[in-house]
């Protein structure tokens, strides 16, 4: 999506795709009634999140843009694993090494370098502030 124009629902309706790859124009009540849709057809794609990140950045919402960029990366992570990752980042849950391993997994397996960097940073701070798992 080049030069995204807000709102995408109005300006990019023809090209918008769900995380499943299904075109937005195919996500219809008829398709839903026939049982042809799955929940991934109602999930946002990484590409759309990156477009929204760009819109936020251009409007001066830098941190929101960074969040939406991480979100784009996290679309690749399955639901259950996403919940586990969040749990690992809560205080006292992980050792320094497990957090570093999580960062690596994000970077290597899920191609999520921005999120990976944030997890590495968390590992450093947690170590400095006693927020790692104690046993």
């Amino acid at each position: 999506m080049t030069d995204p124009k807000y709102p995408l629902m109005e300006n990019a309706a023809d090209t918008l795709q769900a995380a499943s790859g299904r075109l937005l124009s195919e996500i219809t009540l008829e398709a839903a009634a026939n049982g042809d849709l799955s929940i991934t057809d109602l999930r946002i794609s990484a590409e759309t999140l990156r477009a929204q990140a760009e819109i936020a950045r251009e409007a001066g919402y830098t941190q929101l843009a960074a969040n939406l960029t991480r979100a784009a990366e996290l679309t690749a992570v399955p639901n259950e694993e996403l919940l586990q990752m969040y749990e690992m980042l809560r205080p006292g849950r992980s050792t320094f090494e497990t957090l570093v391993a999580l960062a690596e997994k994000l970077e290597v397996v899920y191609n999520a370098p921005v999120t990976g960097r944030m997890v590495r940073e968390a590992a450093e701070v947690y170590r400095a502030r006693g927020l790692l798992r104690r046993v």
Partner: peptide
């Protein structure tokens, strides 16, 4: 920091959660 941790989160876990919600298209 003490209260944040008593709330069972850190700024990083909260930021990750925010991104997780956004990754599923949820307003946060």
């Amino acid at each position: 920091e003490r209260v944040f941790v008593d709330g069972d989160d850190t700024p990083w876990s909260k930021a990750f959660l925010a991104s997780s919600y956004a990754s599923r298209g949820i307003k946060v």
